[in-house]
Design a protein around this nucleic acid. Structure first.
Lengths: 339, 339
DNA sequence: CTGTTAGCGCGTTCAA
DNA sequence: TTGAACGCGCTAACAG
């Protein structure tokens, strides 16, 4: 009993014209007579006909949509304000191009599965080393990809800041203030997805930057209290508690503002005088909590990655493989002089 | 020179089996011999073949994606934390169903155009009266729709809170505290899109609620200072300034937390002692600024609307037309006793 | 310039 | 296990 869709065929019959004529009436009205166009569009209106966009796109071999592959389950990834701002940036460029933005959650807990079934013209990933499985899928599907914050040692188009230099700057500022008992809360090594063994992840890059800063003060990682927390306030708080159980740092350095906010809440609760420096520059941190942090624009990353992806989709071969965007030190109120 | 895609046909030829057999090998391995399945999958691997999801979906008459129609340009709508939380809720349910979530920006500045071309199985809209153009499109495309915060006088599935009662409660709390010089900052009448003349929009519903509360204190709208601002901190601030130029309310009542935060910034800057009550319960407001507000969960709206939409997609005829979700008064620190 | 015929895109599925 | 039709619109090639 399901009402069947009206198709181009129905309009052709009704008007006596051919399917081709109907198609022309919609897409290249100039190709046929005014009279024919009118009659056809009229009939279409009467019969409630609209060309099916899926069939249309299929025929034209395109989707009119960019895909954003969530690196983790929705509950984790889409909740992250940093990722939200990336999405915001991508969406703006999609809008300019008349495209849609398809958010792609892991399928059966697998990002690879999701990539296999995504009906999009190109993909943007965030924050993980593209593993060979995904690379293989993309090759087979001939889908272009742009990786934000991905590992740089692949033949994949990447958008990121200079994480090594940014991390060096972050720690440098802390050391400058005289802090020496520093708690370093990194991101988990498999921040988003298990990286390829050798992949040069964001975490690794930043640690190189930290090492450089430390070296200038004749220190090494072993002089720090180290731990790791995912980019959420909850995890940041838990890890901060854990650290404070057994050590008394004068400053916390984190790899994400989200975690830093969690740390901050613990410090406030204890009414302790400990500095905190974050990384990212999310709105909640910068505006509400006046967090001292490294500012990198998620939106900008989204914008640039979408721009690169569109160039790839259009077949522009000479799109640069690496896109670096600016970062800056954001001076808040949470980094104080060490006593 | 473009490398042509490998198709099911190529695998059929290579293995000597038919297209049907290849299709079965992927989708119903039990329908053909083990041997055939193995050979076929093996060949597929060697030839780097993956079934094209677009062709597959086209053939199966589905998309595996829900669409979220942005009511305004990306810059406005996607920036709104309330909308972000709605999206978050929708995405979670999509994930559960193995679906994607397609964010659909206005096309050529037209939401209707966007709806016409969206390749999705169903649509969710937010905050505007569905105009007849869109309704006509949906009917022609036989696309199910769920409207969040839409006007209720249509035969359209709707998810919302009881806006009239919630607004009544909001103003009641203010009046209880003794405030009588009240500035009311509504949402613009065409909050998101020009409503149908007679449509019962969220703004209208809330105003009825306000009128009820006022009546109990023998007041009417004309006793208030009234203005309107879109749901952004910037607009809230501008309107607050405008109001304070010529009046001296003891309390601001707004229809969005976003605007309330803008109002709050103005009040703080002037170091004035004026109460503020918002509406929505966004995180920035509730947690950072301790805003007194009406709490409605954007996430919950997203969740429920996606659930309803899936039922419609599955052809469940008896899905309730109206879904009401709970709201509550959230007591912060920005509503004080009137002096 | 107008209009048509026929075939394509790529899997799925019915009838044999 | 398979040939052929199907879904729906696009378009190259061709005829008047």
């Amino acid at each position: 009993m399901k009402a069947k869709r009206i198709t181009i065929q129905d309009i052709a019959q009704r008007t006596g014209y051919s399917k081709t004529a109907v198609s022309f009436a919609f897409n290249s009205p100039s190709r046929i007579s005014k009279e024919a166009v009118e009659k056809i569009l009229q009939a279409a209106k009467e019969m409630d006909y609209i060309p099916d966009p899926m069939a249309r796109n299929f025929s034209l071999g395109r989707h009119m949509s960019l895909g954003f592959l969530l690196p983790q389950r929705v509950e984790y990834s889409l909740h992250n304000p940093y990722i939200q701002s990336v999405i915001y940036g991508i969406a703006g460029i999609c809008q300019e191009h008349g495209y849609m933005l398809t958010i792609i959650p892991p399928l059966h807990s697998s990002v690879t599965e999701a990539a296999k079934n995504a009906t999009v013209d190109g993909l943007i990933t965030l924050g993980f080393a593209i593993d060979r499985n995904i690379k293989s899928i993309l090759r087979r599907r001939k889908l272009p990809l742009v990786s934000i914050d991905g590992s740089g040692d692949e033949e994949i188009h990447t958008v990121s800041i200079d994480d090594e230099a940014a991390a060096e700057l972050q720690l440098e500022k802390v050391l400058e203030k005289g802090h020496r008992r520093i708690a370093m809360i990194a991101l988990p090594d498999d921040a988003y997805l298990k990286p390829d063994e050798a992949a040069d992840t964001v975490v690794k890059k930043r640690k190189r930057g930290y090492a450089k800063a430390l070296a200038r003060y004749s220190m090494t990682f072993s002089d720090l209290i180290t731990d790791a927390a995912a980019a959420t306030a909850e995890e940041g708080a838990v890890v901060a508690e854990r650290i404070l159980e057994k050590a008394s740092p004068t400053c916390f350095v984190t790899m994400s503002d989200a975690a830093a906010l969690g740390v901050l809440s613990v410090i406030e609760k204890r009414n302790a005088d400990i500095s905190v420096v974050g990384f990212d520059g999310i709105e909640e941190g910068v505006f509400q909590s006046k967090l001292t942090t490294i500012l990198q624009s998620g939106k900008e990353k989204g914008v640039r990655s979408a721009e690169v992806l569109f160039r790839l989709i259009e077949g522009d071969e000479k799109t640069p493989l690496r896109t670096l965007i600016p970062y800056s030190f954001c001076d808040g109120t949470t980094l104080k002089e060490a006593k």
